[in-house]
Computed example of a mutant assay.
Amino acid sequence: MKPSDVEMNSTTLDNSVAANTTTDHHNSDSEEDTQPQEVGKDSLEDGFLDDVPDDTEDLDVVHERLTTLERLGLERFTNLQRISFRQNLLSKLLPLPNKTLTELDFYDNRLTRIENLDHLTDLTSLDLSFNKIKHIDNVDKLTNLTELFFVANKVSKISGVSTLVNLRNLELGANRIRVIENLEPLVNLEQLWLGKNKITKLQGLDQLKNLKLLSIQSNRLQKIEGLSNLSKLEELYLSHNAIETIEGLENNTNLQTVDVSANRIKKLEGLEKLSHLSELWANDNQLTSYEDVEAQLKDKKELQTVYFERNPLQTAAQATYRLKIKTLLPRVTQIDAALVR
C-alpha cells in the first residue's frame, strides 16, 4: 500500500484513488510496548490527574475538552517523557514544567501560534498538526527534534526550521505552501511530506542527500525535476498533479516506489535506470501502449505491483487487460487492487 501525504497520525486526507487506500508515516499514534497512562474524568477541577502516579512517564489527556493547561498539576510528574493533548480545545501554549519531555503532541486543537516551548530542549518529536498556526516559529531552540508535524494548519511559507539539523521526518501536508524553500540545512532529513499544498515546482531539494521518501501529492506540479542529487531516494509520491512526462529520474537508481497516478501522462517512459523498482502507480493517466509497458518494465526483477487502471490501455480492453499485463510482466504479484492468481 502506498502512503498518502497528508495523513498525520493515521489520519488520511488524500488518496490517489479509491483503490489506493493509504497508511501514514506519522507514527505517534502507533501502539507502543508500554501503553500510556489513560486519564478520563468529567471535570477539570483540582484533582483531575490525582489517579496518575507521580513517576509516570507517559500521560495521555485526549479528547477531554481541555481549554487550558492550568490546574493540571503537571509539575509533580518529574519523570514525564511523553504527553499527548490530542483532540482538545487548547488555544494557547502555556509553559510546561516538565523539562524531561521527549515527545509532545497537540494534534487537533485550536492553537494559533507556537510559544513557550524553548525550554523543552530534549524534545525529539513535536506534533502541532490540525491547528490554526500560520507561521513556523519559536522552535529554533529544539535542536534535538527528529520529527516535526505541522499537517493541516495555515502555513504559507517554509521557514523557522534551519537550526533543526537533526530532523529525520518533516510533515507539512495540507497547508498553503507555494514554494519549497529554506530546507538546505536539513541534511539529515529522510522523509519530507508536502502533499495538498500549492507547490508549482520541484526545487530547493539539492542538499537533502539523505532523503528516502518524498511526497508531493495533490499540488500543481507540471514537471518532474530537481531530484538528481537525491541518490538515496526510495519512495516518490507525485499523484494528483499535472505532470505530462516521466523524466528526470536517471540518478534516482534506488527508487523502489514511484507514484505518478492521476496526472496527464501519455507515454510510459523514463524508468530505464530504476532497476530496484518494486511498485509503480500509474493509474488514471492517458497511457495507451502495452509495448511501452513491456519495454520499460520487463527487466525489473523486483517489480511486484503495478497500477494501470483507468488508462485507455485498460478501459479499451477490459476483458483482456489483466491477462496482457500478466503475460508481459510475469513477475508481478499484484495488478491494480487485485493479487495475481
Results as ranks from 00 to 15, higher is better:
residue 311 N to P: 02
residue 118 D to Q: 13
residue 265 I to T: 08
residue 103 E to R: 12
residue 139 V to G: 02
residue 17 V to W: 11
residue 266 K to S: 11
residue 86 R to P: 00
residue 286 Q to S: 09
residue 1 M to H: 13
residue 225 E to Y: 08
residue 336 D to H: 02
residue 302 E to W: 12
residue 279 E to R: 13
residue 243 I to T: 06
residue 335 I to G: 04
residue 317 A to H: 15
residue 255 L to Q: 01
residue 156 S to T: 11
residue 152 A to T: 07
residue 234 E to Y: 03
residue 135 H to D: 08
residue 102 T to S: 08
residue 282 A to L: 00
residue 40 G to S: 14
residue 93 L to P: 00
residue 56 T to E: 09
residue 240 H to L: 10
residue 225 E to T: 13
residue 103 E to G: 02
residue 164 L to V: 07
residue 96 L to D: 03
residue 245 T to V: 15
residue 199 I to W: 07
residue 28 S to C: 05
residue 228 S to L: 06
residue 65 R to I: 00
residue 260 V to T: 07
residue 57 E to A: 10
residue 230 L to V: 03
residue 148 L to I: 05
residue 159 S to W: 02
residue 77 F to H: 04
residue 332 V to C: 10
residue 6 V to E: 11
residue 154 K to V: 08
residue 170 L to R: 01
residue 62 V to W: 05
residue 14 D to T: 13
residue 316 A to E: 14
residue 232 K to P: 00
residue 187 V to Q: 10
residue 72 L to V: 05
residue 110 R to G: 09
residue 264 R to D: 14
residue 93 L to Y: 05
residue 161 V to F: 03
residue 212 K to F: 08
residue 322 R to D: 04
residue 152 A to Q: 14
residue 88 N to F: 04
residue 78 T to R: 15
residue 192 L to H: 03
residue 322 R to P: 03
residue 252 N to Y: 04
residue 235 E to M: 09
residue 102 T to M: 07
residue 327 T to R: 14
residue 58 D to A: 10
residue 1 M to F: 12
residue 70 E to D: 14
residue 81 Q to S: 10
residue 190 E to W: 07
residue 332 V to Y: 04
residue 256 Q to V: 00
residue 14 D to P: 01
residue 145 L to G: 02
residue 71 R to N: 15
residue 334 Q to A: 12
residue 122 D to A: 11
residue 139 V to I: 15
residue 53 P to K: 05
residue 272 E to A: 15
residue 270 G to L: 07
residue 305 T to A: 08
residue 90 L to K: 00
residue 298 K to H: 14
residue 4 S to A: 14
residue 62 V to H: 06
